[in-house]
Amino acid sequence: MVALLSRRQNWAKASPVLGIAVAVWLCMTFQPSQAIFWALVNIPLYLFHQTEEHFWPGGFKDYINHVLYELPDGEERLTDGKIFWINIIFVWIAFILFGLLSLYHLGFGLLIITFSMMNCSTHIEQAIRRKRWNPGLVMASVQMLISIYAAYFISTYGLTDKASWWTGTILFSAVVHIILYRFIMP
């Protein structure tokens, strides 16, 4: 089953449907005047971001392998299997977990926001450095702007002990990204 879902990023075909479903649920359950809305807004945004990266086979994988790593055709460092596990474990499962924990404390929503902002910044930085589009850039740009507002909103209207949560979420997000780049995508 995992082989079928990971081959040619078949799992990503669920991303736009899940993104729409989560966005509808979010809008029906919470209001933009509530901090929890902004704590969770990155969940559907990230699903749309994954759609841009992976919905069409190739995309992000080809960009990483052939543009970033400059590998010849036929060679891969980032495989369909790695992409599957990165996105299912580090995004889908983690965002569900931290989304649920956000209902307990908004700081976990800040974690979703800071993780998303770090990911978005890598897409934006690559576009600036390479002077070209990369799969995920459009949604990363939109998501970054919304994330900045979301971080401001929950920090201002609902987050207690801001310094501790900001420090913790930035450190956690940085460590996760380092693990991704050092050990999973070497």
Rank of each mutant, 00 (worst) to 15 (best):
L159Q: 07
A3F: 11
F98G: 10
E53A: 03
H66L: 11
I124K: 06
F115C: 06
F37S: 02
L159T: 10
D80Y: 03
V67I: 15
M1W: 09
T114V: 14
K61M: 10
L71Y: 00
T160P: 10
I184P: 01
S141N: 11
W92S: 05
G99W: 02
L5E: 05
M117W: 09
A127W: 11
M118Q: 12
D62M: 03
F84W: 06
C120K: 01
R129S: 09
M185R: 05
L180K: 10
L5A: 13
L110S: 05
L4F: 15
I170G: 08
I148M: 07
C120R: 01
F55C: 03
F172A: 15
Y181M: 10
S6G: 09
Q31R: 13
I184A: 05
V138Y: 06
Y181Q: 11
F37K: 01
L18V: 07
M144P: 02
L103Y: 11
L111T: 12
G109A: 04
W166F: 15
C27D: 13
F153H: 10
I89N: 04
H54W: 08
V176N: 02
I124R: 04
V175E: 04
W25C: 00
K162C: 06
F183Y: 15
L78T: 00
K82S: 00
G136E: 04
T79W: 09
D161T: 14
F108D: 01
L137Q: 02
V41F: 08
D73R: 13
H177E: 08
L100Y: 15
S121N: 07
Y181K: 06
I154C: 02
R132V: 08
F84A: 09
I184V: 14
L106P: 02
T51E: 05
L78N: 01
S6V: 06
H105V: 14
E76F: 07
F84Y: 14
T122S: 14
I43S: 03
I124N: 08
A21S: 11
V91E: 01
W166V: 13
A94L: 15
W165V: 09
A21I: 05
W25S: 02
V138I: 13
V24S: 07
S33W: 07
K162R: 15
I146C: 08
G99M: 08
A140R: 06
Q31K: 14
H123K: 00
I88E: 10
I154P: 03
A94I: 08
D80L: 00
A23G: 11
S141C: 14
R129W: 09
C120H: 06
K162E: 08
L137E: 01
L180R: 11
I179E: 04
I178V: 14
V176M: 12
F183I: 11
L47C: 11
L145G: 15
M185Q: 10
F95Y: 14
H54L: 08
A140S: 15
L103T: 14
T29E: 00
H105I: 12
D62S: 08
A94C: 12
A3K: 13
G19Y: 03
A151W: 01
R182A: 11
H54A: 05
G19H: 02
Q31A: 12
S15K: 05
L101I: 10
V176Y: 05
L40A: 02
G81D: 14
E52S: 00
H49L: 09
G99V: 10
S155L: 07
W133V: 08
P57M: 03
L180E: 12
D73Y: 13
L145Q: 03
G136H: 03
S121A: 14
I170F: 14
I113K: 03
